[in-house]
Every structure is written in structure tokens, then in C-alpha cells.
Amino acid sequence: MILWELFQTFFLMGFVSFGGGYAMLPIIEKAVTEYGWMSAEHMTNMIAIAGMSPGPVAANSAILIGYSAAGISGAVVSAMAILLPSLILVITVAAFFIKLHHNPVVERMFYGLKPLVTSLIIYAAIKFALANNLITLDISFRSISLVIIFGLSLFALFKLRWNPVYVIALSGLVGIALYS
């Protein structure tokens, strides 16, 4: 049952959702491949729309993956699945007055958790680069221009400090000019 698969995936993801949406891409990628919800290209398109929309990237991705896999009911189930852990955890923490901030045990866990979140994002970058033919042995106009677009996007984000939303929009225009 596809709705159950969606619920399970995003409910579990909600409990380990540290470091923002892009660190959660390996979990999404794994579920999408395992359950065969959609192609890698389609998944990347959904992540792009999630990144362009207001709201948390992880929740937006869940909504769009759910929508692509099972329509509106998929979107609703995925959104509830990813929000439920936040609700449960926040109410638990608040009810028991658990002081998580500056808690030594939490800080020691984060000492190992944060570098691992970095690994997750690096892993996601490798996986998505491979899936979208950014790392390839095939030398063609398409593959070379994509590497240049990748480099220019990174430059715009990092050196020019552009908002990612604008970078995506401009990249779309470049794509229309080059590939249509």
C-alpha cells in the first residue's frame, strides 16, 4: 500500500530530521528507489520545486513526493507523517520541562551528529550528481554545459550570496535558452 509506504518513510524521517532538508535527501532517495515511486530525474525536479517554495525543504519534499506517488491523499499523508514527530517531541519536551539546550549529553551527541549530517549532505550531492549525469565519462555539449551551470550556480550562491530561489529561476531560463 503506497500510502502506508509514504507514511512510514516520512514518519521515521521526522524523528531524525536534523540539519535541515538537504540532509534528509539520502532517506528520500533511498525510499524512492526502493519503492519505485518515480525516476531519479523526477525526484530531483520535485526537490527543486520544494527548494523554490516557502516552508521547510524536508516537509515540502515530502508533500511533493507524496503528491507524485499517490495524488492529493499522498500529499496529505506525507505532510502529516513528517509533522507528527515534531508534535510528539515538542509536546514531550515541553510537558516534562526537559532542558535540551546546553544539556551536556545532548551537546555530546551533537558532537558526532553534526559531522554525520555533513556526510549525509555530501553523500546526497554525489548521488544526485550521478543520477543527473553531472558526473559522467560521456563528453558532449550537454554534459560539459551542465558542469558549467553547476559551477556558475555554486559561484552565485557562495561568492555572490544570491538567494537560492533566484539561482534556480535564472538556471531555468538558461536551460530554456540552451536545451529547447
Partner: peptide, 17 residues
Amino acid sequence: AAFISIRATIVAIIVFA
């Protein structure tokens, strides 16, 4: 065509993150 380019940009955004 737009999404061919946007997919490369998404990889850049992941690297940036």
C-alpha cells in the same frame, strides 16, 4: 529544458548546504 539546467543547480545547492 528548464529542468535539465535546474537539476544541475540543485546539486550545487546541496553542495552549498
